[in-house]
């Protein structure tokens, strides 16, 4: 009798403890999410009257060139960025995890980009791309570097990519280092006795052991790269000629000031679906790989 009473009072306490989180989450995540979804079926400008237009916005999304370009840019940026980030950070993690001098200091330095804000880093790199790099390009006569890459429709996305990768490598490296540390050293020692080549050692030993961490990092970095915003604001403002307009930036630009509240809400709903789809696909693929091994 006493125990059941105690359990129920305990459950009441649990309920009380989760309540503040649930209230806040409903108020500032679920409600705006639903509101946004509702607005996506309207022609709301952000002010004044509006009416429901059915699937109109969604149909228009697929024929809108600016929207299509923003998706193409964001996908290109996220896919190439994610591959580069993970290649570089696996290499860097393996370097920082081997027998080297000054390990702690080196790790500390390589992690710095992660703690600095994307906006300010963007401004600093913006100066580098606009003034330093062209000067170097002129000095050594590399044609495409002689003008600022940020002012060139063809190359501006590379500038944004460099800054995004520069920042993200730090975080993923730390995760890979902690992954490498979970690999027991006697596995390597056994391999060494057998005279395995370094490449074989990587593909047969390190890579499979790292798979769970690769899976975490792929999902995290794809998600972050898809949501790119700060670097766009400080480096290119979406230009030149909208060649670096990311999805987040377009929604912000045209949804907040451009009188496209309803239309950009539809864009945001589509963006949400895309992010979830990317995550599910990646988890499925890496999950299958893990099962096979």
């Amino acid at each position: 009798m006493k125990t059941t009473k105690q359990i129920s009072s305990r459950d009441k306490t649990y309920l009380l403890m989760i309540l503040p989180a649930i209230i806040l989450f409903v108020a500032f995540n679920t409600i705006p999410l639903i509101t946004g979804a509702v607005y996506s079926f309207t022609n709301y400008k952000g002010y004044g009257d509006f009416s429901f237009v059915g699937l109109r916005n969604y149909i228009d999304l697929f024929s809108d060139e600016r929207v299509r370009n923003s998706y193409l840019f964001t996908f290109k940026y996220a896919i190439i960025g994610t591959i580069l980030i993970n290649l570089l950070s696996i290499l860097l993690a393996m370097g920082l995890n081997s027998k080297i001098k000054g390990k702690t200091v080196l790790r500390g330095i390589y992690f710095i980009p992660n703690i600095l804000g994307g906006l300010i880093i963007g401004y600093i790199f913006g100066f580098f791309f606009t003034y330093i790099l062209p000067a170097v390009g002129k000095a050594v006569h590399i044609g495409f570097l002689e003008n600022s890459i940020l002012a060139d429709e063809k190359y501006a996305w590379l500038g944004v990519l460099i800054v995004g990768v520069w920042q993200a490598v730090a975080m993923n490296t730390i995760i890979y280092i902690s992954g490498l540390q979970t690999i027991p050293s006697d596995i390597y020692e056994a391999g060494m006795v057998d005279g395995v080549t370094p490449w074989k050692k990587f593909t047969k030993l390190t890579f499979p052991m790292l798979l769970p961490f690769i899976s975490i990092n792929l999902v995290l970095s794809t998600k972050n790269m898809l949501m790119v915003f700060d670097q766009i604001v400080s480096l290119t403002k979406g230009g030149p000629a909208q060649s670096t307009e990311s999805i987040s930036y377009l929604i912000y630009r045209n949804g907040m000031d451009g009188g496209q509240f309803g239309f950009q809400s539809a864009n945001a709903v589509l963006f949400f679906i895309v992010i979830v789809a990317f995550a599910i696909i990646q988890i499925k693929i890496t999950g299958k790989k893990e099962e096979q091994l």
């Binding site: 500032f28 705006p32 999410l33 952000g46 949501m227 987040s248 950009q264 945001a268 963006f271 949400f272």
Partner: peptide
């Protein structure tokens, strides 16, 4: 119910700020 609450909250990880932004400004 708590298991549901867990997945309900954790799934928020994949909601981009872009979709909440405009409604949140109004709210």
């Amino acid at each position: 119910s708590f298991k549901f609450a867990y997945f309900y909250i954790v799934s928020g990880m994949f909601v981009p700020f872009a979709i909440l932004m405009m409604p949140l400004v109004k709210e």
